[in-house]
């Protein structure tokens, strides 16, 4: 049983079986209050699923892409929960969850090309393109995740999906399928896709005219 956490857009937490069944999912679409809601979402989700921490076998962390401040909170939560419960953390590209959800729900046909778009703030978007589901039932990533101005987003995909929340249930399902097929998880680095805002000090300015 997996506990999946994603704060790359809003905040979402789910309990998902290794067979891919979503037992509970709680989300908040507030893009600013990740730190406030994360504890209650996790505790509430375990309650909803009616399971003890001991029943879990792993954590799933949505690695973004996401605007930095919020994205980190879910990853930090997944990692520290993993330490507390003595469980591994499986990193997953957050857009994969949106894509899986779209294909499974029928928003995109199983063989359609799909463009997943999320808000990157500062008038920019994160995007990833997909080419349907593979034999394991996982979305096939073609390009991305990447960052672009709204006018520069790819247009050739047959379906475009702008998402506000990454469903943690689907994130857990991606991880369950990857575990079942020995697939490749995301890296350990959060997908900020932006360098930190820094202004290199330009030496000292004169104070006397």
């Amino acid at each position: 049983m997996l506990l999946a956490i994603d704060t790359s857009a809003g905040s979402s937490v789910a309990v998902v079986t290794l067979g891919g069944e979503v037992l509970a999912e709680r989300s908040s679409d507030d893009p600013m209050r990740h730190a406030e809601v994360i504890g209650t979402l996790v505790a509430g989700c375990l309650d909803d699923a009616g399971i003890e921490v001991a029943a879990l076998t792993g954590l799933v962390a949505g690695m973004g892409p996401g605007p930095f401040t919020g994205l980190r909170i879910g990853i930090a939560a997944a990692r520290s929960f993993g330490i507390g419960a003595g469980l591994p953390v499986h990193p997953v590209v957050s857009h994969d969850a949106i894509a899986l959800d779209a294909y499974r729900s029928g928003s995109a046909a199983p063989d359609a090309t799909l463009l997943v778009v999320t808000d990157a703030r500062r008038r920019e978007r994160y995007w990833t393109s997909y080419a349907g589901l593979d034999a394991a039932g996982l979305p096939v990533r073609v390009e991305g995740p990447a960052l672009a101005k709204p006018d520069d987003l790819p247009t050739s995909e047959s379906v475009r999906l702008d998402a506000l929340v990454v469903p943690a249930g689907a994130l857990g399902q991606v991880a369950a399928a990857l575990l079942a097929t020995d697939g490749e998880f995301a890296g350990e680095e959060p997908l900020y896709l932006r360098s930190p805002d820094v202004t290199m000090s330009a030496g000292t300015k004169r104070v006397t005219a």
Binding site: T7, A35, G39, V53, T69, R72, A78, G84
Partner: peptide, 23 residues
């Protein structure tokens, strides 16, 4: 620094829930 504080807050909450301990 708020962004820095949030990392600790998120981690502490999840750790406390995972252990069933007060925070």
């Amino acid at each position: 620094l708020s962004g820095a504080l949030m990392v600790g807050v998120g981690a502490a909450k999840a750790l406390a829930v995972s252990l069933g301990k007060p925070l």
